[in-house]
């Protein structure tokens, strides 16, 4: 006669399942909230997403550049940034022109280096010292900001 599994074992199983489900949900949410489709759901981000979509980086997620790569720092960074953006969009004031903070600039620069490390091997240390950010030379990468306004922005956004 087979003993029915004890209540304890069932609970562990359920918990494991729920845990896996939660983890999958979290992983999925983390992925989705990295994407331009999510970021572009606030109209103040239209310009950023629009210029991203016509750029060579169009197939990468926003947070491939805009957040740290790894788990815990990324979660903390995203939570902070998300909360701040949510606040600015609801109770705060959005600036006429939205610029990156120094913190974001550093994160983005790390992302440049992360993907393009092999290319950078060809660039002397001196070069990297000469310009603090990669985009100081690669100037159209930050959202094609030298294009005429009409190709980037429209009113009501």
């Amino acid at each position: 006669m087979v003993q029915p599994p004890g209540r304890g074992k069932v609970a562990v199983l359920v918990l494991l399942l729920v845990g896996a489900g939660l983890y999958a949900g979290m992983a999925f949410s983390m992925k989705v909230t990295d994407q331009p489709e999510f970021c572009g759901s606030c109209h103040v981000m239209y310009e950023a997403v629009r210029t991203h979509q016509v750029s060579p980086h169009a197939n990468l997620a926003c947070n491939e550049c805009h957040a740290p790569e790894t788990g815990v720092p990324k979660i903390i960074f995203k939570a902070r940034a998300g909360t701040k953006d949510f606040y600015q969009n609801t109770l705060g004031d959005v600036f006429d022109v939205i610029h990156t903070t120094d913190k974001t600039k550093d994160v983005v620069n790390e992302s440049c280096i992360r993907c393009h490390s092999m290319t950078i091997l060809n660039v002397s240390e001196k070069m990297i010292e000469a310009k603090p950010y990669c985009t100081d030379c690669h100037r159209s990468v930050p959202h094609m900001s030298k294009l005429p306004i009409s190709e980037r922005r429209v009113s009501d956004e």
């Binding site: 759901s41 629009r50 979509q53 429209v154």
Partner: peptide, 20 residues
């Protein structure tokens, strides 16, 4: 978690061309 996931899915908008 479900609500967050749903929100993320629902708010996937297509960003329009710059049309006035």
């Amino acid at each position: 978690a479900a609500a967050l996931g749903a929100m993320a899915l629902v708010s996937c908008t297509e960003v329009p061309e710059p049309v006035t």
